Simulated scan of single mutants.
Amino acid sequence: MARPGDVVTEHPFVVAHRGASADLPEHTLAAYDRALAEGADGVECDVRLTSDGHLVCVHDRRVDRTSSGVGVVSEMTLSQLQNLDYGGWHPSGMAGSPNSEKSGDTGLLTLDALVELVLDWHRPVKIFIETKHPVRYGALVERKVLALLARYGIAAPASASRSRAVVMSFSAAAVWRIRRAAPLMPTVLLGSAAQYLGGSAATTVGATAIGPSIETLREHPELVDHAAARGRALYCWTVDQAADVDFCRDVGVAWIATNQPARTKARLRAG
């Protein structure tokens, strides 16, 4: 399996963006279980800290969009967050939906539970963990992530190529904190500006990969070669359109994040 930092000559590896989030509610156990069953090579999640110090998989600063509640994640306890419904907003949870009877667990997902799912799966899968910034807890987020990974024995891999986890962020400081504390942990510096990702920032923080959006990569496909020349891979988000999947394959992207892992895998196999 390739890693951020490898130069990939095969088709891109598929990362389920927030799980199989086109079909099931994002960041739920149901969505990740579906993605893994569909053959995803990796899974991606966003993590935030609760007010009582737990890492939970929630993308937004607030829970309003993806739950039955309202409020800021960092101001709520784990128990308060667990009392909310995270599936009803999604079309799959609505009466009459083809997925409504088989959506599975759509409760709050902790990073602990997702790591357990990935490590217990019957084949090797990587977990891509994005830390969100700016947040009120600052560097504590990265420290908590590494402490959690250490509990599962995957915070200090024998080599980057054998790592089961990858840590990502749009914050260069966050990537540097991971690199400094866990030198062999693969990292991805995310961004939307080609000048930023193609410049010195990734070198400065020791990122093993860069992560542009598909829109940025479309405008600057040379980012793939620039990254490879510096020993880095390229992780592209969020790739759902067939033409974009083909494009990523053709320019040599290593990892593509998609909301549709089954369809993306099928497209790559067909190509």
Results as ranks from 00 to 15, higher is better:
residue 155 A to F: 08
residue 155 A to M: 07
residue 155 A to W: 07
residue 155 A to P: 00
residue 156 A to L: 11
residue 157 P to W: 05
residue 157 P to A: 06
residue 157 P to Y: 09
residue 158 A to C: 10
residue 158 A to Q: 09
residue 159 S to K: 07
residue 159 S to N: 03
residue 159 S to W: 03
residue 159 S to H: 10
residue 160 A to C: 01
residue 160 A to L: 10
residue 161 S to W: 09
residue 161 S to I: 13
residue 162 R to S: 08
residue 162 R to P: 01
residue 162 R to T: 14
residue 162 R to K: 11
residue 162 R to G: 02
residue 163 S to D: 04
residue 163 S to P: 00
residue 164 R to K: 15
residue 164 R to P: 01
residue 164 R to I: 10
residue 165 A to C: 09
residue 165 A to M: 10
residue 166 V to P: 01
residue 166 V to H: 03
residue 167 V to H: 02
residue 167 V to E: 05
residue 167 V to A: 11
residue 168 M to R: 08
residue 168 M to K: 03
residue 168 M to Y: 02
residue 168 M to V: 01
residue 169 S to R: 04
residue 169 S to N: 03
residue 169 S to T: 04
residue 169 S to M: 11
residue 170 F to C: 09
residue 170 F to A: 11
residue 171 S to A: 11
residue 171 S to P: 01
residue 171 S to F: 07
residue 172 A to L: 14
residue 172 A to D: 12
residue 173 A to E: 15
residue 173 A to I: 12
residue 173 A to M: 12
residue 173 A to N: 14
residue 174 A to C: 07
residue 174 A to V: 12
residue 175 V to H: 08
residue 175 V to I: 13
residue 175 V to Q: 00
residue 176 W to A: 15
residue 176 W to D: 13
residue 176 W to I: 07
residue 177 R to V: 07
residue 177 R to C: 08
residue 178 I to N: 01
residue 179 R to H: 11
residue 179 R to Q: 07
residue 180 R to P: 00
residue 181 A to C: 03
residue 181 A to V: 05
residue 181 A to M: 14
residue 182 A to N: 06
residue 182 A to H: 03
residue 182 A to I: 04
residue 183 P to I: 12
residue 183 P to H: 06
residue 183 P to N: 04
residue 185 M to G: 06
residue 186 P to L: 15
residue 186 P to W: 14
residue 186 P to C: 15
residue 186 P to H: 13
residue 187 T to N: 02
residue 187 T to I: 05
residue 189 L to G: 02
residue 189 L to D: 00
residue 190 L to I: 13
residue 190 L to A: 03
residue 191 G to L: 13
residue 191 G to Y: 08
residue 191 G to I: 14
residue 192 S to Y: 14
residue 193 A to G: 01
residue 193 A to P: 00
residue 193 A to R: 15
residue 193 A to H: 10
residue 194 A to W: 12
residue 194 A to S: 12
residue 194 A to G: 12
